[in-house]
Design a protein around this nucleic acid. Structure first.
Lengths: 238, 238
DNA sequence: ATACATTTGTGCGTATGTATG
DNA sequence: GCATACATACGCACAAATGTA
């Protein structure tokens, strides 16, 4: 289970993040030699990075690091914000769990998670902080049939890391819904943000490779200048 | 210049949009037979649709239409909102051009469009309306070296359609930046939206296949419940 | 302006692995 | 256990865009 294209992709990603590649990448041919794999495998790896917006590519010229992501530190790349990784460039994001409980899913939640209504889910709320600055308030729901065990301590760390190690649950696709939101009195109690202040609401459904969802979450971003970035490619216009 | 995978992709997209495919698609093998092309070509086509969030796929099972997009009519799919296509499901979007002028690019704009400062650009503002309801105010800038000719009449229609037919400029990649915004007095004069009301600001840079940008735009969405949707896939978590 | 080498894009074939039903 | 369907990986050839001499 050592997928070649993944090893290549992860290695290239590391070299980009550590600054080994800052602009132009080696050509496909050079990468084939470097990793000793076929061109298909190289292109598979590069596609994975390209589709995350990490790379640009120009026919006849080559592959380049997408620098749009590396200018502003309050930019969130929607394609790989796996646990707010991008905001963490300077300082790590800390989580403060407000509560954790087990509840039956209502109809809407059950639809999001593709489970029967009344099925048990973990329900929790966390504050996400960076150096004592509030980044967002997050309310999330985890399917208990997939995540049978959670504690407040675990939620103060990385839930995604925990469920991968313990239950082999790996997030593969994310459906993100972004909209405008005004803070409620309930939020005010948890965050001290004034009631009726504008914020960005981010709803996410995280699913595994087989499209089975394991988590539904709603996050409210209060930072006035937080920016969400997405790079999309459309072949169909031709 | 008749790319097979594109013809296949466009045909499948049409079948999805017209309701010929509502859930499960034919298997890769069946599509190979149907279109008389190789498996690579079929997978190329399906990848293009998959990366736009139009399809889901499950190993061992098949390809499926992503129904998340077809529930809510005020949802904008960030991956293919080429001219607000998605919002148009019920009624077409109309454009009302407020003004059109030629100006020299300032430093920030020049950086976005990868041109020298002081290069000429078209500068225009439009209201985007759906049945007299204001969807957004759009301010946009087009490189005049690529788009030498524009009129108010053209801008009242589809600019993208016009520049494709006239100048062979085809949008391929879009960099989107999404953030919170409060209406200004200047906006109030153009839209009658109260000053200091929250809105969603969408900045976009549209580029051609060779990464050459031709358009930078800023749109302010005032609809209270407009939602932006993105589906992202991350292989690197494995 | 032309020719040429380089680099990515498209398309074909084949084989084997893994998930699903 | 079995058939089906998608996932990965190898190979090859030629087209199209780019950069350079």
């Amino acid at each position: 289970m050592a997928l070649k294209y993944l090893e290549v992709a992860q290695d290239i990603a590391k070299k980009i993040n550590t600054g080994a590649y800052t602009n132009k990448l080696p050509s496909e041919g050079q990468l084939m030699q470097l990793y000793g794999v076929s061109r298909n495998t190289i292109r598979n790896a590069l596609n994975a990075l390209f589709n995350q917006g990490m790379l640009k590519r120009i026919q006849g010229s080559g592959y380049f690091v997408n620098e749009a992501l590396y200018h502003n530190h309050d930019i969130i790349n929607m394609a790989n914000k796996y646990g707010l990784r991008d905001l963490e460039k300077d300082a790590p994001i800390q989580s403060k769990t407000l509560f954790l409980e087990i509840i039956p899913a209502d109809a809407k939640l059950a639809a999001h998670l593709k489970i029967k209504p009344q099925s048990e889910v973990y329900h929790l709320k966390r504050l996400r902080l960076r150096q004592d600055e509030l980044i967002c308030l997050e309310e999330s729901f985890y399917r208990r049939d997939l995540v049978p065990y959670l504690t407040t301590d675990i939620c103060n760390g990385s839930i995604f890391h925990f469920i991968k190690e313990q239950f082999n649950i790996v997030g593969h696709v994310t459906d993100t819904y972004l909209s405008l939101h005004y803070t409620t009195p309930a939020e005010n109690e948890l965050t001290n943000i004034p009631v009726n202040q504008a914020a960005i609401k981010v709803e996410e459904v995280h699913s595994q490779k087989n499209e089975q969802p394991f988590d539904y979450s709603i996050s409210y971003y209060y930072l006035p200048d937080v920016t969400f970035y997405a790079r999309t490619v459309n072949h169909l216009n031709n």
